[in-house]
Nucleic acid binder design. Structure first.
Lengths: 249, 249
DNA sequence: GTCGCGCTTTAAACTGGATTTAGGCGGATG
DNA sequence: CATCCGCCTAAATCCAGTTTAAAGCGCGAC
């Protein structure tokens, strides 16, 4: 019966109801807030790994750079996401994190996660399921990068983003705000900004999408799904194996 | 004090000592064996997800296909690996599995994994760490696919493979057997078999490697590490947060 | 207003890797 | 010992996407 609805709780409860104990654990994690402004780098690959974040507001990107400056963006983070879970078992973080717009994060120490692991088997299992799901999503992206044309890759990215946004706001239709610039999209899809521009224009001409400032409307979602053989990994998680909920603990 | 040394146990103990209880759990998992011959497809993406495998002998590949036949290989499995862990939270498996040579697998039901989760927090945490580590490795591969040239990608793959093989056989020097054909390597690196052939030849001419049948010798490992900004993710796992070992349970 | 700045667009030249096709080699099979 | 088959190599051609450079286009600062 919390008044400030947390997007982390919303996102997790999309998969499974949480006990009051579990929600209390999560509230603890989201206790403190920190602001970062657009373009700010929050940590860098190689830094010692000491805290995780829950995204409260705004989009962020994680990326890995080559020494000569080539950059590969590997994850796009939205409100409700946990950032840094992947690196939990590493001494140093493997990617850098940057705010693409003004954001609000809830930082928390790795130890807080230990607390979750110790006291809530159900939440632990859920987080683990989501981490494994993320790995499947990464595999999908890998396939897109290795085997799809530029147009297919952009289509795939748009489908993936909208599927994720629909988790938290189910009334969302076919239009959403995309606060990434074309250089960042290129760094995500393994292309160049110039070719992103060209392909976006082409997609508009051919009626796949419509653009309006930062907003993208997907006009031929079915066709894009078919072209990219898209699977929505955010809907069909199997939670049947989760331990019974924490109320008994 | 087991006589038949299990490569799974060897691989896990590379990171952390295991209690007798834990080893017993793993023995249970490796109880039954099944043989598959070279080229055989063991399961297909979309099949219902019911069992996992420990690799006992031989190499295998996991891949995702597009409906029109384009194929992306996403993982190369070696003896001691657990296959299918990624899909544990999915109703249907997301990739296909194929033996690249004659292999021996130990199949076990998902429930056996539940047993591990219930009874050994330490083993659970270790498996989870390794799953997260795999995700970091996947991110490295993604960077290679998105931002590296053909020569760099091949170099990266060779470095990754030899780093993994060195976990189980530390006396391994700079030479190893690579039972993949060039078409498979291409499907792994997002290139074509023809260009793999060309680039391999070039790498040999330029003194990066030497080839001899299925064997590859890496001659300029330092240079390749530098070119690809290679990080060995198999060495530096942080296990300090693991719960104390299961003997007290 | 107009200057500067970040971002997108367009165009032209270029190239890394794809495609296609043919040949060659080695090992299994009869 | 001839045939076949899977795999690797080589050469010619082609093209999707890169590179470089130069406009456009808002938009906020002053």
């Amino acid at each position: 019966m919390q008044k400030t609805s947390s997007c982390l709780v919303t996102k997790l409860q999309h998969y499974v109801p949480l006990s009051e104990t579990d929600r209390a654990l999560l509230r603890e994690i989201e206790k403190s807030e920190r602001n970062y402004q657009a373009g700010q780098e929050i940590y860098q690959g190689g830094d010692t790994n000491k805290e995780l974040f829950v995204v409260k507001r705004g989009w962020l990107i994680s990326y890995a750079d080559m020494p000569d400056g080539r950059r590969q963006i590997v994850k796009i983070h939205h409100p409700g996401d946990i950032v840094g879970f992947t690196d939990i078992a590493l001494k140093d973080v493997s990617t850098s994190l940057c705010a693409v717009e003004n954001v609000v994060l809830c930082p928390f120490a790795k130890q807080a996660m230990d607390e979750v692991f110790r006291t809530s088997p159900r939440l632990t299992a859920l987080l683990m399921s989501l981490a494994l799901r993320d790995q499947v999503v990464l595999i999908d992206l890998l396939r897109a990068m290795g085997r799809m044309s530029a147009l297919e890759r952009i289509g795939y990215m748009l489908l993936d983003l909208i599927a994720r946004l629909r988790i938290t706001s189910s009334e969302l239709t076919d239009r959403f705000r995309l606060p990434l610039n074309q250089t960042q999209i290129a760094q995500y899809l393994g292309l160049t900004n110039v070719y992103i521009s060209k392909t976006f224009s082409r997609m508009e001409v051919e009626g796949y999408i419509r653009r309006d400032g930062l907003h993208i409307q997907i006009l031929r979602e079915d066709r894009l799904r078919e072209m990219t053989d898209f699977h929505n990994r955010y809907d069909d998680i199997d939670i049947s194996w989760l331990p019974s909920d924490g109320t008994q603990a």
